[in-house]
């Protein structure tokens, strides 16, 4: 039997209306997240990962951003049809988010405890005292020593890793169904990164939530996600289970990303890189968006855009050399 999806994003398109022109930051992106599952979303900076996550939260600054088409079904209800007041009851409660920059994501002038209990009081309708107890409990849960004392500290008194733990405590304080983690470990050093990922994995099972893990780091995905969506220049270019993706990447971009991970074993040599850089979204290349950087680019890749090909077993790829048909315009 097909597992019921918690979140289904269908044909989501987000455009930014800027002075220089219209930028399609997210182009007909579709994916879904099952209950209790961790979905990794991978891509370079500017590929539309963060915009997608903010679109789910309906936190994109408008203007300039506008969601021009698509559906975001959360537990069967379209978030794009919700009023702002309904969205506020969902944010921080049923869908929570943690961000890349723990150093700047907490308000410097309030104690961390207050920032956690604020969300609890808002959504759980607890009294002030109960909210404080719950916040302390959350701080303990995320592994902050001496939580009663730490409750009264300010963000600047904590390290980056500690602050990210506080962010996680805040995000999980109302037992959300979905946690969106936007590059949660990018700003942290490697040992702290492992601790935070481990913490997120443990708490995910404990709370029974799903996680959308956005990152540019395939190593992070390998440790946490079951399925992976690879994005490039605003489009999904490949989707696969974690094992399939690492063993047999289909899209040349994914293959390039995997090759550019530095390895300890094997012969030493120069690190592989993907030549070129992400195209300017105001001026996308004709044809496949990856063609200027693609080692396998053929004539058709420069003329037509490939459509996303369903290969069964949850696998999708957008590449002519893997059999994608041209996209209907």
């Amino acid at each position: 039997m097909e597992e019921k999806s918690l979140l289904e994003v269908k044909d989501l398109t987000v455009k930014f209306f800027t002075d220089d022109g219209v930028v399609t930051a997210v182009d007909r992106v579709s994916f879904d997240i099952k209950r209790g599952e961790t979905l990794g979303m991978v891509g370079e900076s500017g590929c539309g990962k963060s915009v997608t996550s903010l679109a789910i939260m309906r936190l994109l600054p408008s203007p300039p951003a506008r969601i021009t088409s698509g559906k975001i079904l959360f537990e069967g209800e379209d978030l794009l049809q919700k009023s702002e007041a309904e969205m506020r009851r969902i944010r921080g409660n049923r869908i929570s988010m943690i961000f890349q920059e723990p150093m700047t994501s907490l308000n410097p002038v309030f104690t961390v405890g207050r920032q956690i209990s604020e969300a609890i009081m808002l959504h759980q309708k607890l009294s002030g005292k109960e909210a404080v107890e719950r916040a302390v409990e959350m701080l303990r849960l995320v592994g902050i020593p001496n939580p009663e004392k730490r409750y009264h500290e300010y963000p600047h008194q904590m390290s980056g890793g500690m602050r990210q733990r506080v962010m996680i405590a805040m995000a999980l304080s109302c037992n959300p169904k979905l946690l969106i983690a936007d590059e949660p470990t990018t700003a942290l050093d490697v040992t702290i990164q492992a601790q935070i990922l481990d913490l997120m994995n443990r708490l995910k099972d404990r709370v029974g939530m799903s996680v959308l893990l956005i990152t540019h780091d395939l190593g992070v995905v390998a440790e946490t996600a079951r399925r992976v969506v690879v994005m490039y220049a605003g489009q999904v270019v490949e989707e696969a289970s974690c094992e399939d993706l690492f063993e047999n990447p289909l899209h040349p971009y994914t293959a390039g990303l995997l090759k550019s991970i530095p390895r300890l074993e094997g012969e030493k040599g120069r690190l592989n890189v993907i030549e070129g850089s992400v195209p300017n979204p105001l001026n996308l290349p004709p044809g496949c968006r990856f063609n200027p950087r693609c080692p396998e680019a053929a004539d058709i890749c420069r003329k037509k855009s490939p459509a996303l090909l369903e290969m069964g077993n949850g696998r999708r790829v957008r590449c002519f050399s893997r059999g994608s048909p041209p996209e209907e315009v």
Binding site: M57, L59, R88, R89, I90, R91, G92, N93, S96, M97, F99, E101, T104, S105, L106, N107, P108, V109, F110, Q115, E118, A119, L122, H123, M167, M170
Partner: peptide
Amino acid sequence: RQDYIRTARAKGLAERAVIFVHALKNALI
């Protein structure tokens, strides 16, 4: 435009609380 204002919105706070609690105290300094 600071990250913590985005955090406050992501928590589900009403815009009023975001402006008058989270933003104002920082802006006053």
